[in-house]
């Protein structure tokens, strides 16, 4: 039961900290932010690993295989696209060799 309380505490603490941090993200970075959080939401991949942590039937293995593939697709795609976008943002700065203003 203690574990359950910890889980609930983790949920609400992360929600609150997330709100505090993300409210300060400038509009300029909203697309990369969503792209990165999109990748983070594929953290369900941990669940896909856990499916394979105990002996299971072949149907469950198949479901696990599909879940693993989908979550991996989401996680790597999200981080790679975010990185591509953020490189675009930095490109101009590097070319111009100037200090870019922070924030939106």
């Amino acid at each position: 039961m203690a574990d359950l309380y910890i889980m609930l505490a983790v949920f609400f603490a992360s929600l609150a900290i997330g709100f505090l941090i993300i409210a300060k993200v400038p509009p300029r970075l909203h697309t990369p932010l969503m792209s990165m959080t999109n990748a983070i939401s594929a953290v369900t991949i941990l669940g896909a690993f856990l499916i394979f942590s105990v002996e299971t039937g072949s149907w469950v293995k198949l479901l696990g295989l599909v879940a693993m593939g989908l979550a991996a697709f989401n996680v790597v795609g999200g981080f790679v696209i975010t990185d591509r976008m953020l490189r675009l943002f930095r490109r101009h700065e590097r070319q111009a060799g100037t200090e870019s203003a922070e924030g939106g």
């Binding site: 574990d3 949920f11 997330g18 941990l46």
Partner: peptide, 16 residues
């Protein structure tokens, strides 16, 4: 599942 990391990451994304 009972996985704290999953909960924290999911909640952060939900906030965002």
């Amino acid at each position: 599942i009972g996985n704290r990391l999953l909960i924290a990451a999911g909640a952060t994304v939900a906030a965002s």
